[in-house]
Amino acid sequence: MDYYVAIASIIGIHALLGLSVYVVAISGQMSFGQQGFFAIGAYLAGMSTAMWGLGLVPALVLGALVAGAMGFVVGFPALRVRGLYLAIATFGFGEIVRLAFLNVRYTENIGGRVVGPNGAEGFRHVRYVYDRGFTGLHYLAVILVVLVVVVILFFLLERSKVGAKLRAVEEDETAAAMIGINVTRVKVVAFAAAAAVAGLGGGLFIHYSTYIDHDMVALPLAIASVTYPLLGGLGSFVGTLLGAIVLVGLTEGLRGLQGMREFVYGGLIILMMIFRPRGIVDEALVLRVKSWLSPRAPREPVQAP
């Protein structure tokens, strides 16, 4: 049971990271730097509980807020560029954050233990969850509550005016601007919200793992974060959740194959992209599900005049 709880916890945390990419993606951008916000949220939330004596909730909120604020600041210059250029710019930001944490040393001796970001040594002893008697199931509940809150916000967003603006910007920036949408504001707000969600994921991660170092927020995490929404499909946020479930599930499910695992993992992803080139939950599937859920009333035959 504990094993499945652990997998579900990892899926929940990665889903948040994937959702942060999804928000940026539905505004027509692609970010390879969400792992940087994830790291900011993780380090800050970790410092909050392990060094400053804050509770878990304020720590998570602080991590998310600072990551979101950072997203807002980074968003303005970064979103001046588009497409591949933006991908490179955001990845550059992620690397700056990673290298910053490689060099930051801010530690305290607490109970004979060196606690805090310690450069290449990493940040140890973030044991708030385990020291306070949280079981794996308890912490999974915390992760799921956070995920559900974020998902509800996404659900509302997709049906709101802001969501429509995001989709409009994704479809055609010029046309969106011509109908009076402030494209820059929409993109920056989306970027900041995405950064906050990634920060939240980071905060949850460090309290789950008790440890983080610069190498855990490097390129592989960036690739994973982008893969979830792309493999899951951009038709709905549900795709990102499915993407995280499938990819983390594959990683764990193929464990028995040992050395062959990477080949089979890669092969299955290729097969998935062949079967579902626009992701598991693509726009066509979303429309189909919508038509199932709200079938149209049969039309009255039109009478000839």
Partner: peptide, 21 residues
């Protein structure tokens, strides 16, 4: 017919996750 791939993916994912007993 277009949903075949989706079903295959879903089945593979569920089977892999429930695999280790």
């Amino acid at each position: 017919k277009r949903l075949t791939g989706f079903k295959v993916i879903a089945l593979v994912a569920v089977a892999l996750l429930l695999g280790p007993v």
